[in-house]
Amino acid sequence: MSSFKAGTKKILTHLIIILGLLFALLFFFFEVYLPGYTNHGETVTVPDLESFHYDEIEDYLSSRDLRYEISADSGFVADAQPLSVLKQNPRPGTKVKQGRKIYITLNAENAPMIKMPNLVNSLIKNAQEVLAIYGLERGEIIYVPDIGQNVVLDQKYRGRTIKEGFEIPKGSQIDLVVGDGLGKQTLAIPNLVGMEEADAEFLVVGSGLRLGRINYVSTDTVPKGTIIKQLPPSGIEAKTGELIDVWISELENQDNF
Rank of each mutant, 00 (worst) to 15 (best):
N118C: 06
V120N: 00
V120W: 02
N121H: 15
L123Q: 05
I124E: 01
K125P: 00
Q128G: 08
V130I: 11
L136P: 01
I141V: 09
I141R: 03
I142H: 09
V144R: 02
P145D: 12
P145E: 11
D146R: 01
D146G: 04
N150S: 05
V152R: 00
L153G: 08
L153I: 14
D154T: 08
K156A: 07
K156R: 15
K156Y: 05
Y157P: 10
T161L: 11
K163T: 13
K163E: 15
E164C: 08
E164K: 14
E164R: 05
G171I: 11
Q173T: 14
D175R: 00
D175N: 04
V178T: 09
D180E: 06
D180H: 01
L182D: 01
G183M: 14
K184M: 04
T186G: 06
T186M: 11
T186S: 10
L187D: 08
L187V: 08
A188I: 04
A188W: 04
I189Y: 00
I189R: 00
P190S: 12
N191Y: 03
L192Q: 04
G194A: 03
M195T: 05
M195N: 07
M195G: 01
A198S: 15
A200C: 06
A200P: 11
A200W: 07
F202W: 09
F202A: 11
L203K: 07
V204E: 02
V204Y: 05
V204A: 10
V205E: 15
G206Q: 13
S207Y: 09
S207L: 10
L211H: 05
L211R: 13
G212H: 15
G212W: 05
R213P: 02
R213G: 02
I214C: 01
N215T: 15
V217K: 13
S218L: 13
D220P: 14
T221L: 09
V222T: 13
V222Q: 12
T226L: 03
I227T: 09
I227P: 08
Q230H: 10
P232C: 02
P232L: 10
P233Y: 02
G235K: 00
G235A: 04
E237S: 11
E237Q: 14
A238V: 11
A238K: 00
A238P: 05
